[in-house]
Each structure stands twice: as structure tokens, then as C-alpha cells.
Write a protein that binds this DNA or RNA. Structure first.
Lengths: 162, 162
DNA sequence: TATTGTTATACTCTATAACTATA
DNA sequence: TATAGTTATAGAGTATAACAATA
């Protein structure tokens, strides 16, 4: 079925195409949140019982800390989150969702899940299996200590002419 | 195990984190190809027995046609691909890999597969299952006609306050 | 001195519009 | 007139570096 000589068989293409397709649909569902899907993810983190500081959030969301500052600014101006100085270390700021932010997140969470079901419908009963495997992979690749491993692996494989 | 209140349970985050992790590792393996992973994907398409024109390639790679022009320029200057005017319609140009391009693609293909095996090792024996499901999803989301469906679905769900 | 976060700046990537050539 | 591709320009997104506050 799959032609191995075409890009459709490339793992990088599969991940990219899936991500682009998801982002396009999610962009519509989450257009009411500053920053779109990224703002939604930040809002989600801000509803945690143990809110993270900005450095941790930047690493978790895969963005630069300077970019995160602007993103938080937008969400804060919209009244969705607030910066709370950490009493134990006043350099750090915990990002916490407001009541308005929690309500909006909950509402969009429901809509997002419905959209995801439409997207994953093509996988049939294997959709939950796929999500479980993807979750394992994503957590593995996003762990800070694994980033080092990936680089060393990649470099050891990169023995081609430059 | 998975905390549903955190972003790690979000499908968008999973796809994004996996894509970022893969792109980072692939960037090292494919640093010798102009355009990195994207250049590799174009090179892969250019090795097809039925080479595509630029419009089709742009849609397949998920990039704008104007961006594709520059990407092809870089690969052509490196002697990896060439533009062949379509005899049937001289407006169109088929992108075909040179012998040098095919050799480089084959070499990097091997290295890339080894790297992917390292990345997917965390999934154990389910790695092939994951790739099959991801392939189905990616092809589905990348099909042009489905783009329309996604938008209409998303818009019908976007009944929130703006 | 090191770390967290902010700000200003510069850079990269991408998209918009106008253009050429073919149909 | 419409389409494929190119070019120039503008825009969005991102990263780099210098800074202030705190440890």
C-alpha cells in the first residue's frame, strides 16, 4: 500500500503532516484564546494544582522563555491567567489561571475533544491505542535529559560528507 | 499515570512535542542537505518514478509555493535535483533527483532509519503499530479535500464567545 | 556570581502581491 | 482569461543580547 520511495513513508513527514492538520483545525476551535493552541496549552498548565514557573513552562511547551513572556502578557491582559511571585523564591513567578481562564479552558476543552474525535475517527477503534503510544513517545522526547541523548545519537549517525 | 489536567494529555501537545523532538534529532542527521529535513523530504519526492510538479510538491510538503522555489534553488545549486520542463505543459516543471542526489538521499535514508529506531525504541514492539496508525492519520489529514472538512468541523464546534 | 524574568533588537521564516511564461 | 512558477516586499514568528531583580 505505502510506497516506500515516497515521502509518505517518512516518519518526519507523518509527524509534520499530522501536526499541521491538527494545528489547522485546532486554530479554528481555539481562535478565541490569545496565542491559539499555544495559549490553550499554557492555560491548561495554569489550571494545574501545582502551577509551574516560566522556565518550566517554556521547556514544557517547547518555546523560548522570551516568547513565553509575550504569550503570558496576552493571556494576562485578557484576564485569563495571573503571575504569582513564588514566596520561597521571589525571582520565580507561578502562572495561575483565573476563574475566567478556568471556565474558558473547560469550555474549549470540550469542543477540542469533539474535534479530535472527528480527526481520529479514521483510525477507528485503534484511536485510543494511537493516543496512548503517542503520549509515551511525546513524554519521552520532551524530557530534558533525553534531549542530550537524541543529540549524541544523531551526531554519531551523522558520518556523511558535509 | 497520565494527569488529565496537564498539557501532557493534550493531543496537540503530544503531536507538537513529538514533532519537535524528531525535528531536532533529524536536523543533526540531515544537516548535510540544504533545507534540512524539508530538503530531505523534497529529495525523497524527487527520486520518485513519477516526479511531481512544484504545486503538487508544495501541497504534499505543507509549504507555500514561493517557499518551495527557494528550497529547490538551494538543492539545485548543490547539484542534488534539477528542474525538468514538462513536455506536455511547459509551464510545469518536474523536480527530479540527480545521481548525486539519489546517492545522498539513500545514504541519509539509512542513517535516518537508524535514528528513528532509537527514537521509537521507547514504544517497544508497538513501534510498527504506531507508525502504521500515524501513516493513516497523516495521509488522511494531508489530503486536500479533507482540509475543507476539517475547517467546517472546527467552525461548527467554535460556538464560544469571541 | 548565578538564576529568573523582561525588554530591545536582529534574524529567520513565511506569506502577499506583482510579474513572466505558457496554456 | 487562467494557471505554473518566479521575484520582491512585507509580515509574523523566533532567537540573541543586555538588563533588573533576587538568590
Amino acid at each position: 500500500m505505502a510506497d516506500e520511495t515516497l515521502v509518505e513513508g517518512d516518519l518526519g513527514w507523518m509527524l509534520g503532516a499530522s501536526f499541521r492538520g491538527y494545528a489547522k483545525a485546532a486554530g479554528h476551535v481555539l481562535s478565541g484564546i490569545p496565542g491559539g493552541p499555544r495559549g490553550y496549552q499554557l492555560l491548561t498548565e495554569a489550571t494545574s494544582d501545582t502551577p509551574a514557573n516560566q522556565g518550566t513552562l517554556a521547556q514544557r511547551l517547547g518555546i523560548d522563555r522570551t516568547v513565553l513572556t509575550y504569550l503570558i502578557d496576552d493571556l494576562e491582559q485578557a484576564g485569563l491567567v495571573e503571575r504569582r511571585p513564588d514566596p520561597a523564591d521571589r525571582r520565580q513567578r507561578r502562572i495561575v489561571a483565573t476563574a475566567k481562564g478556568r471556565a474558558l479552558r473547560e469550555d474549549r476543552h470540550t469542543a477540542l475533544r469533539a474535534m479530535e474525535a472527528c480527526l481520529l475517527a479514521v483510525l477507528g477503534e485503534d484511536a485510543s491505542t494511537f493516543q496512548a503510544l503517542l503520549c509515551t513517545l511525546a513524554r519521552h522526547l520532551n524530557s530534558a535529559d533525553h534531549h542530550i541523548d537524541l543529540c549524541s545519537i544523531a551526531e554519531s549517525l551523522d558520518d556523511s560528507p558535509r
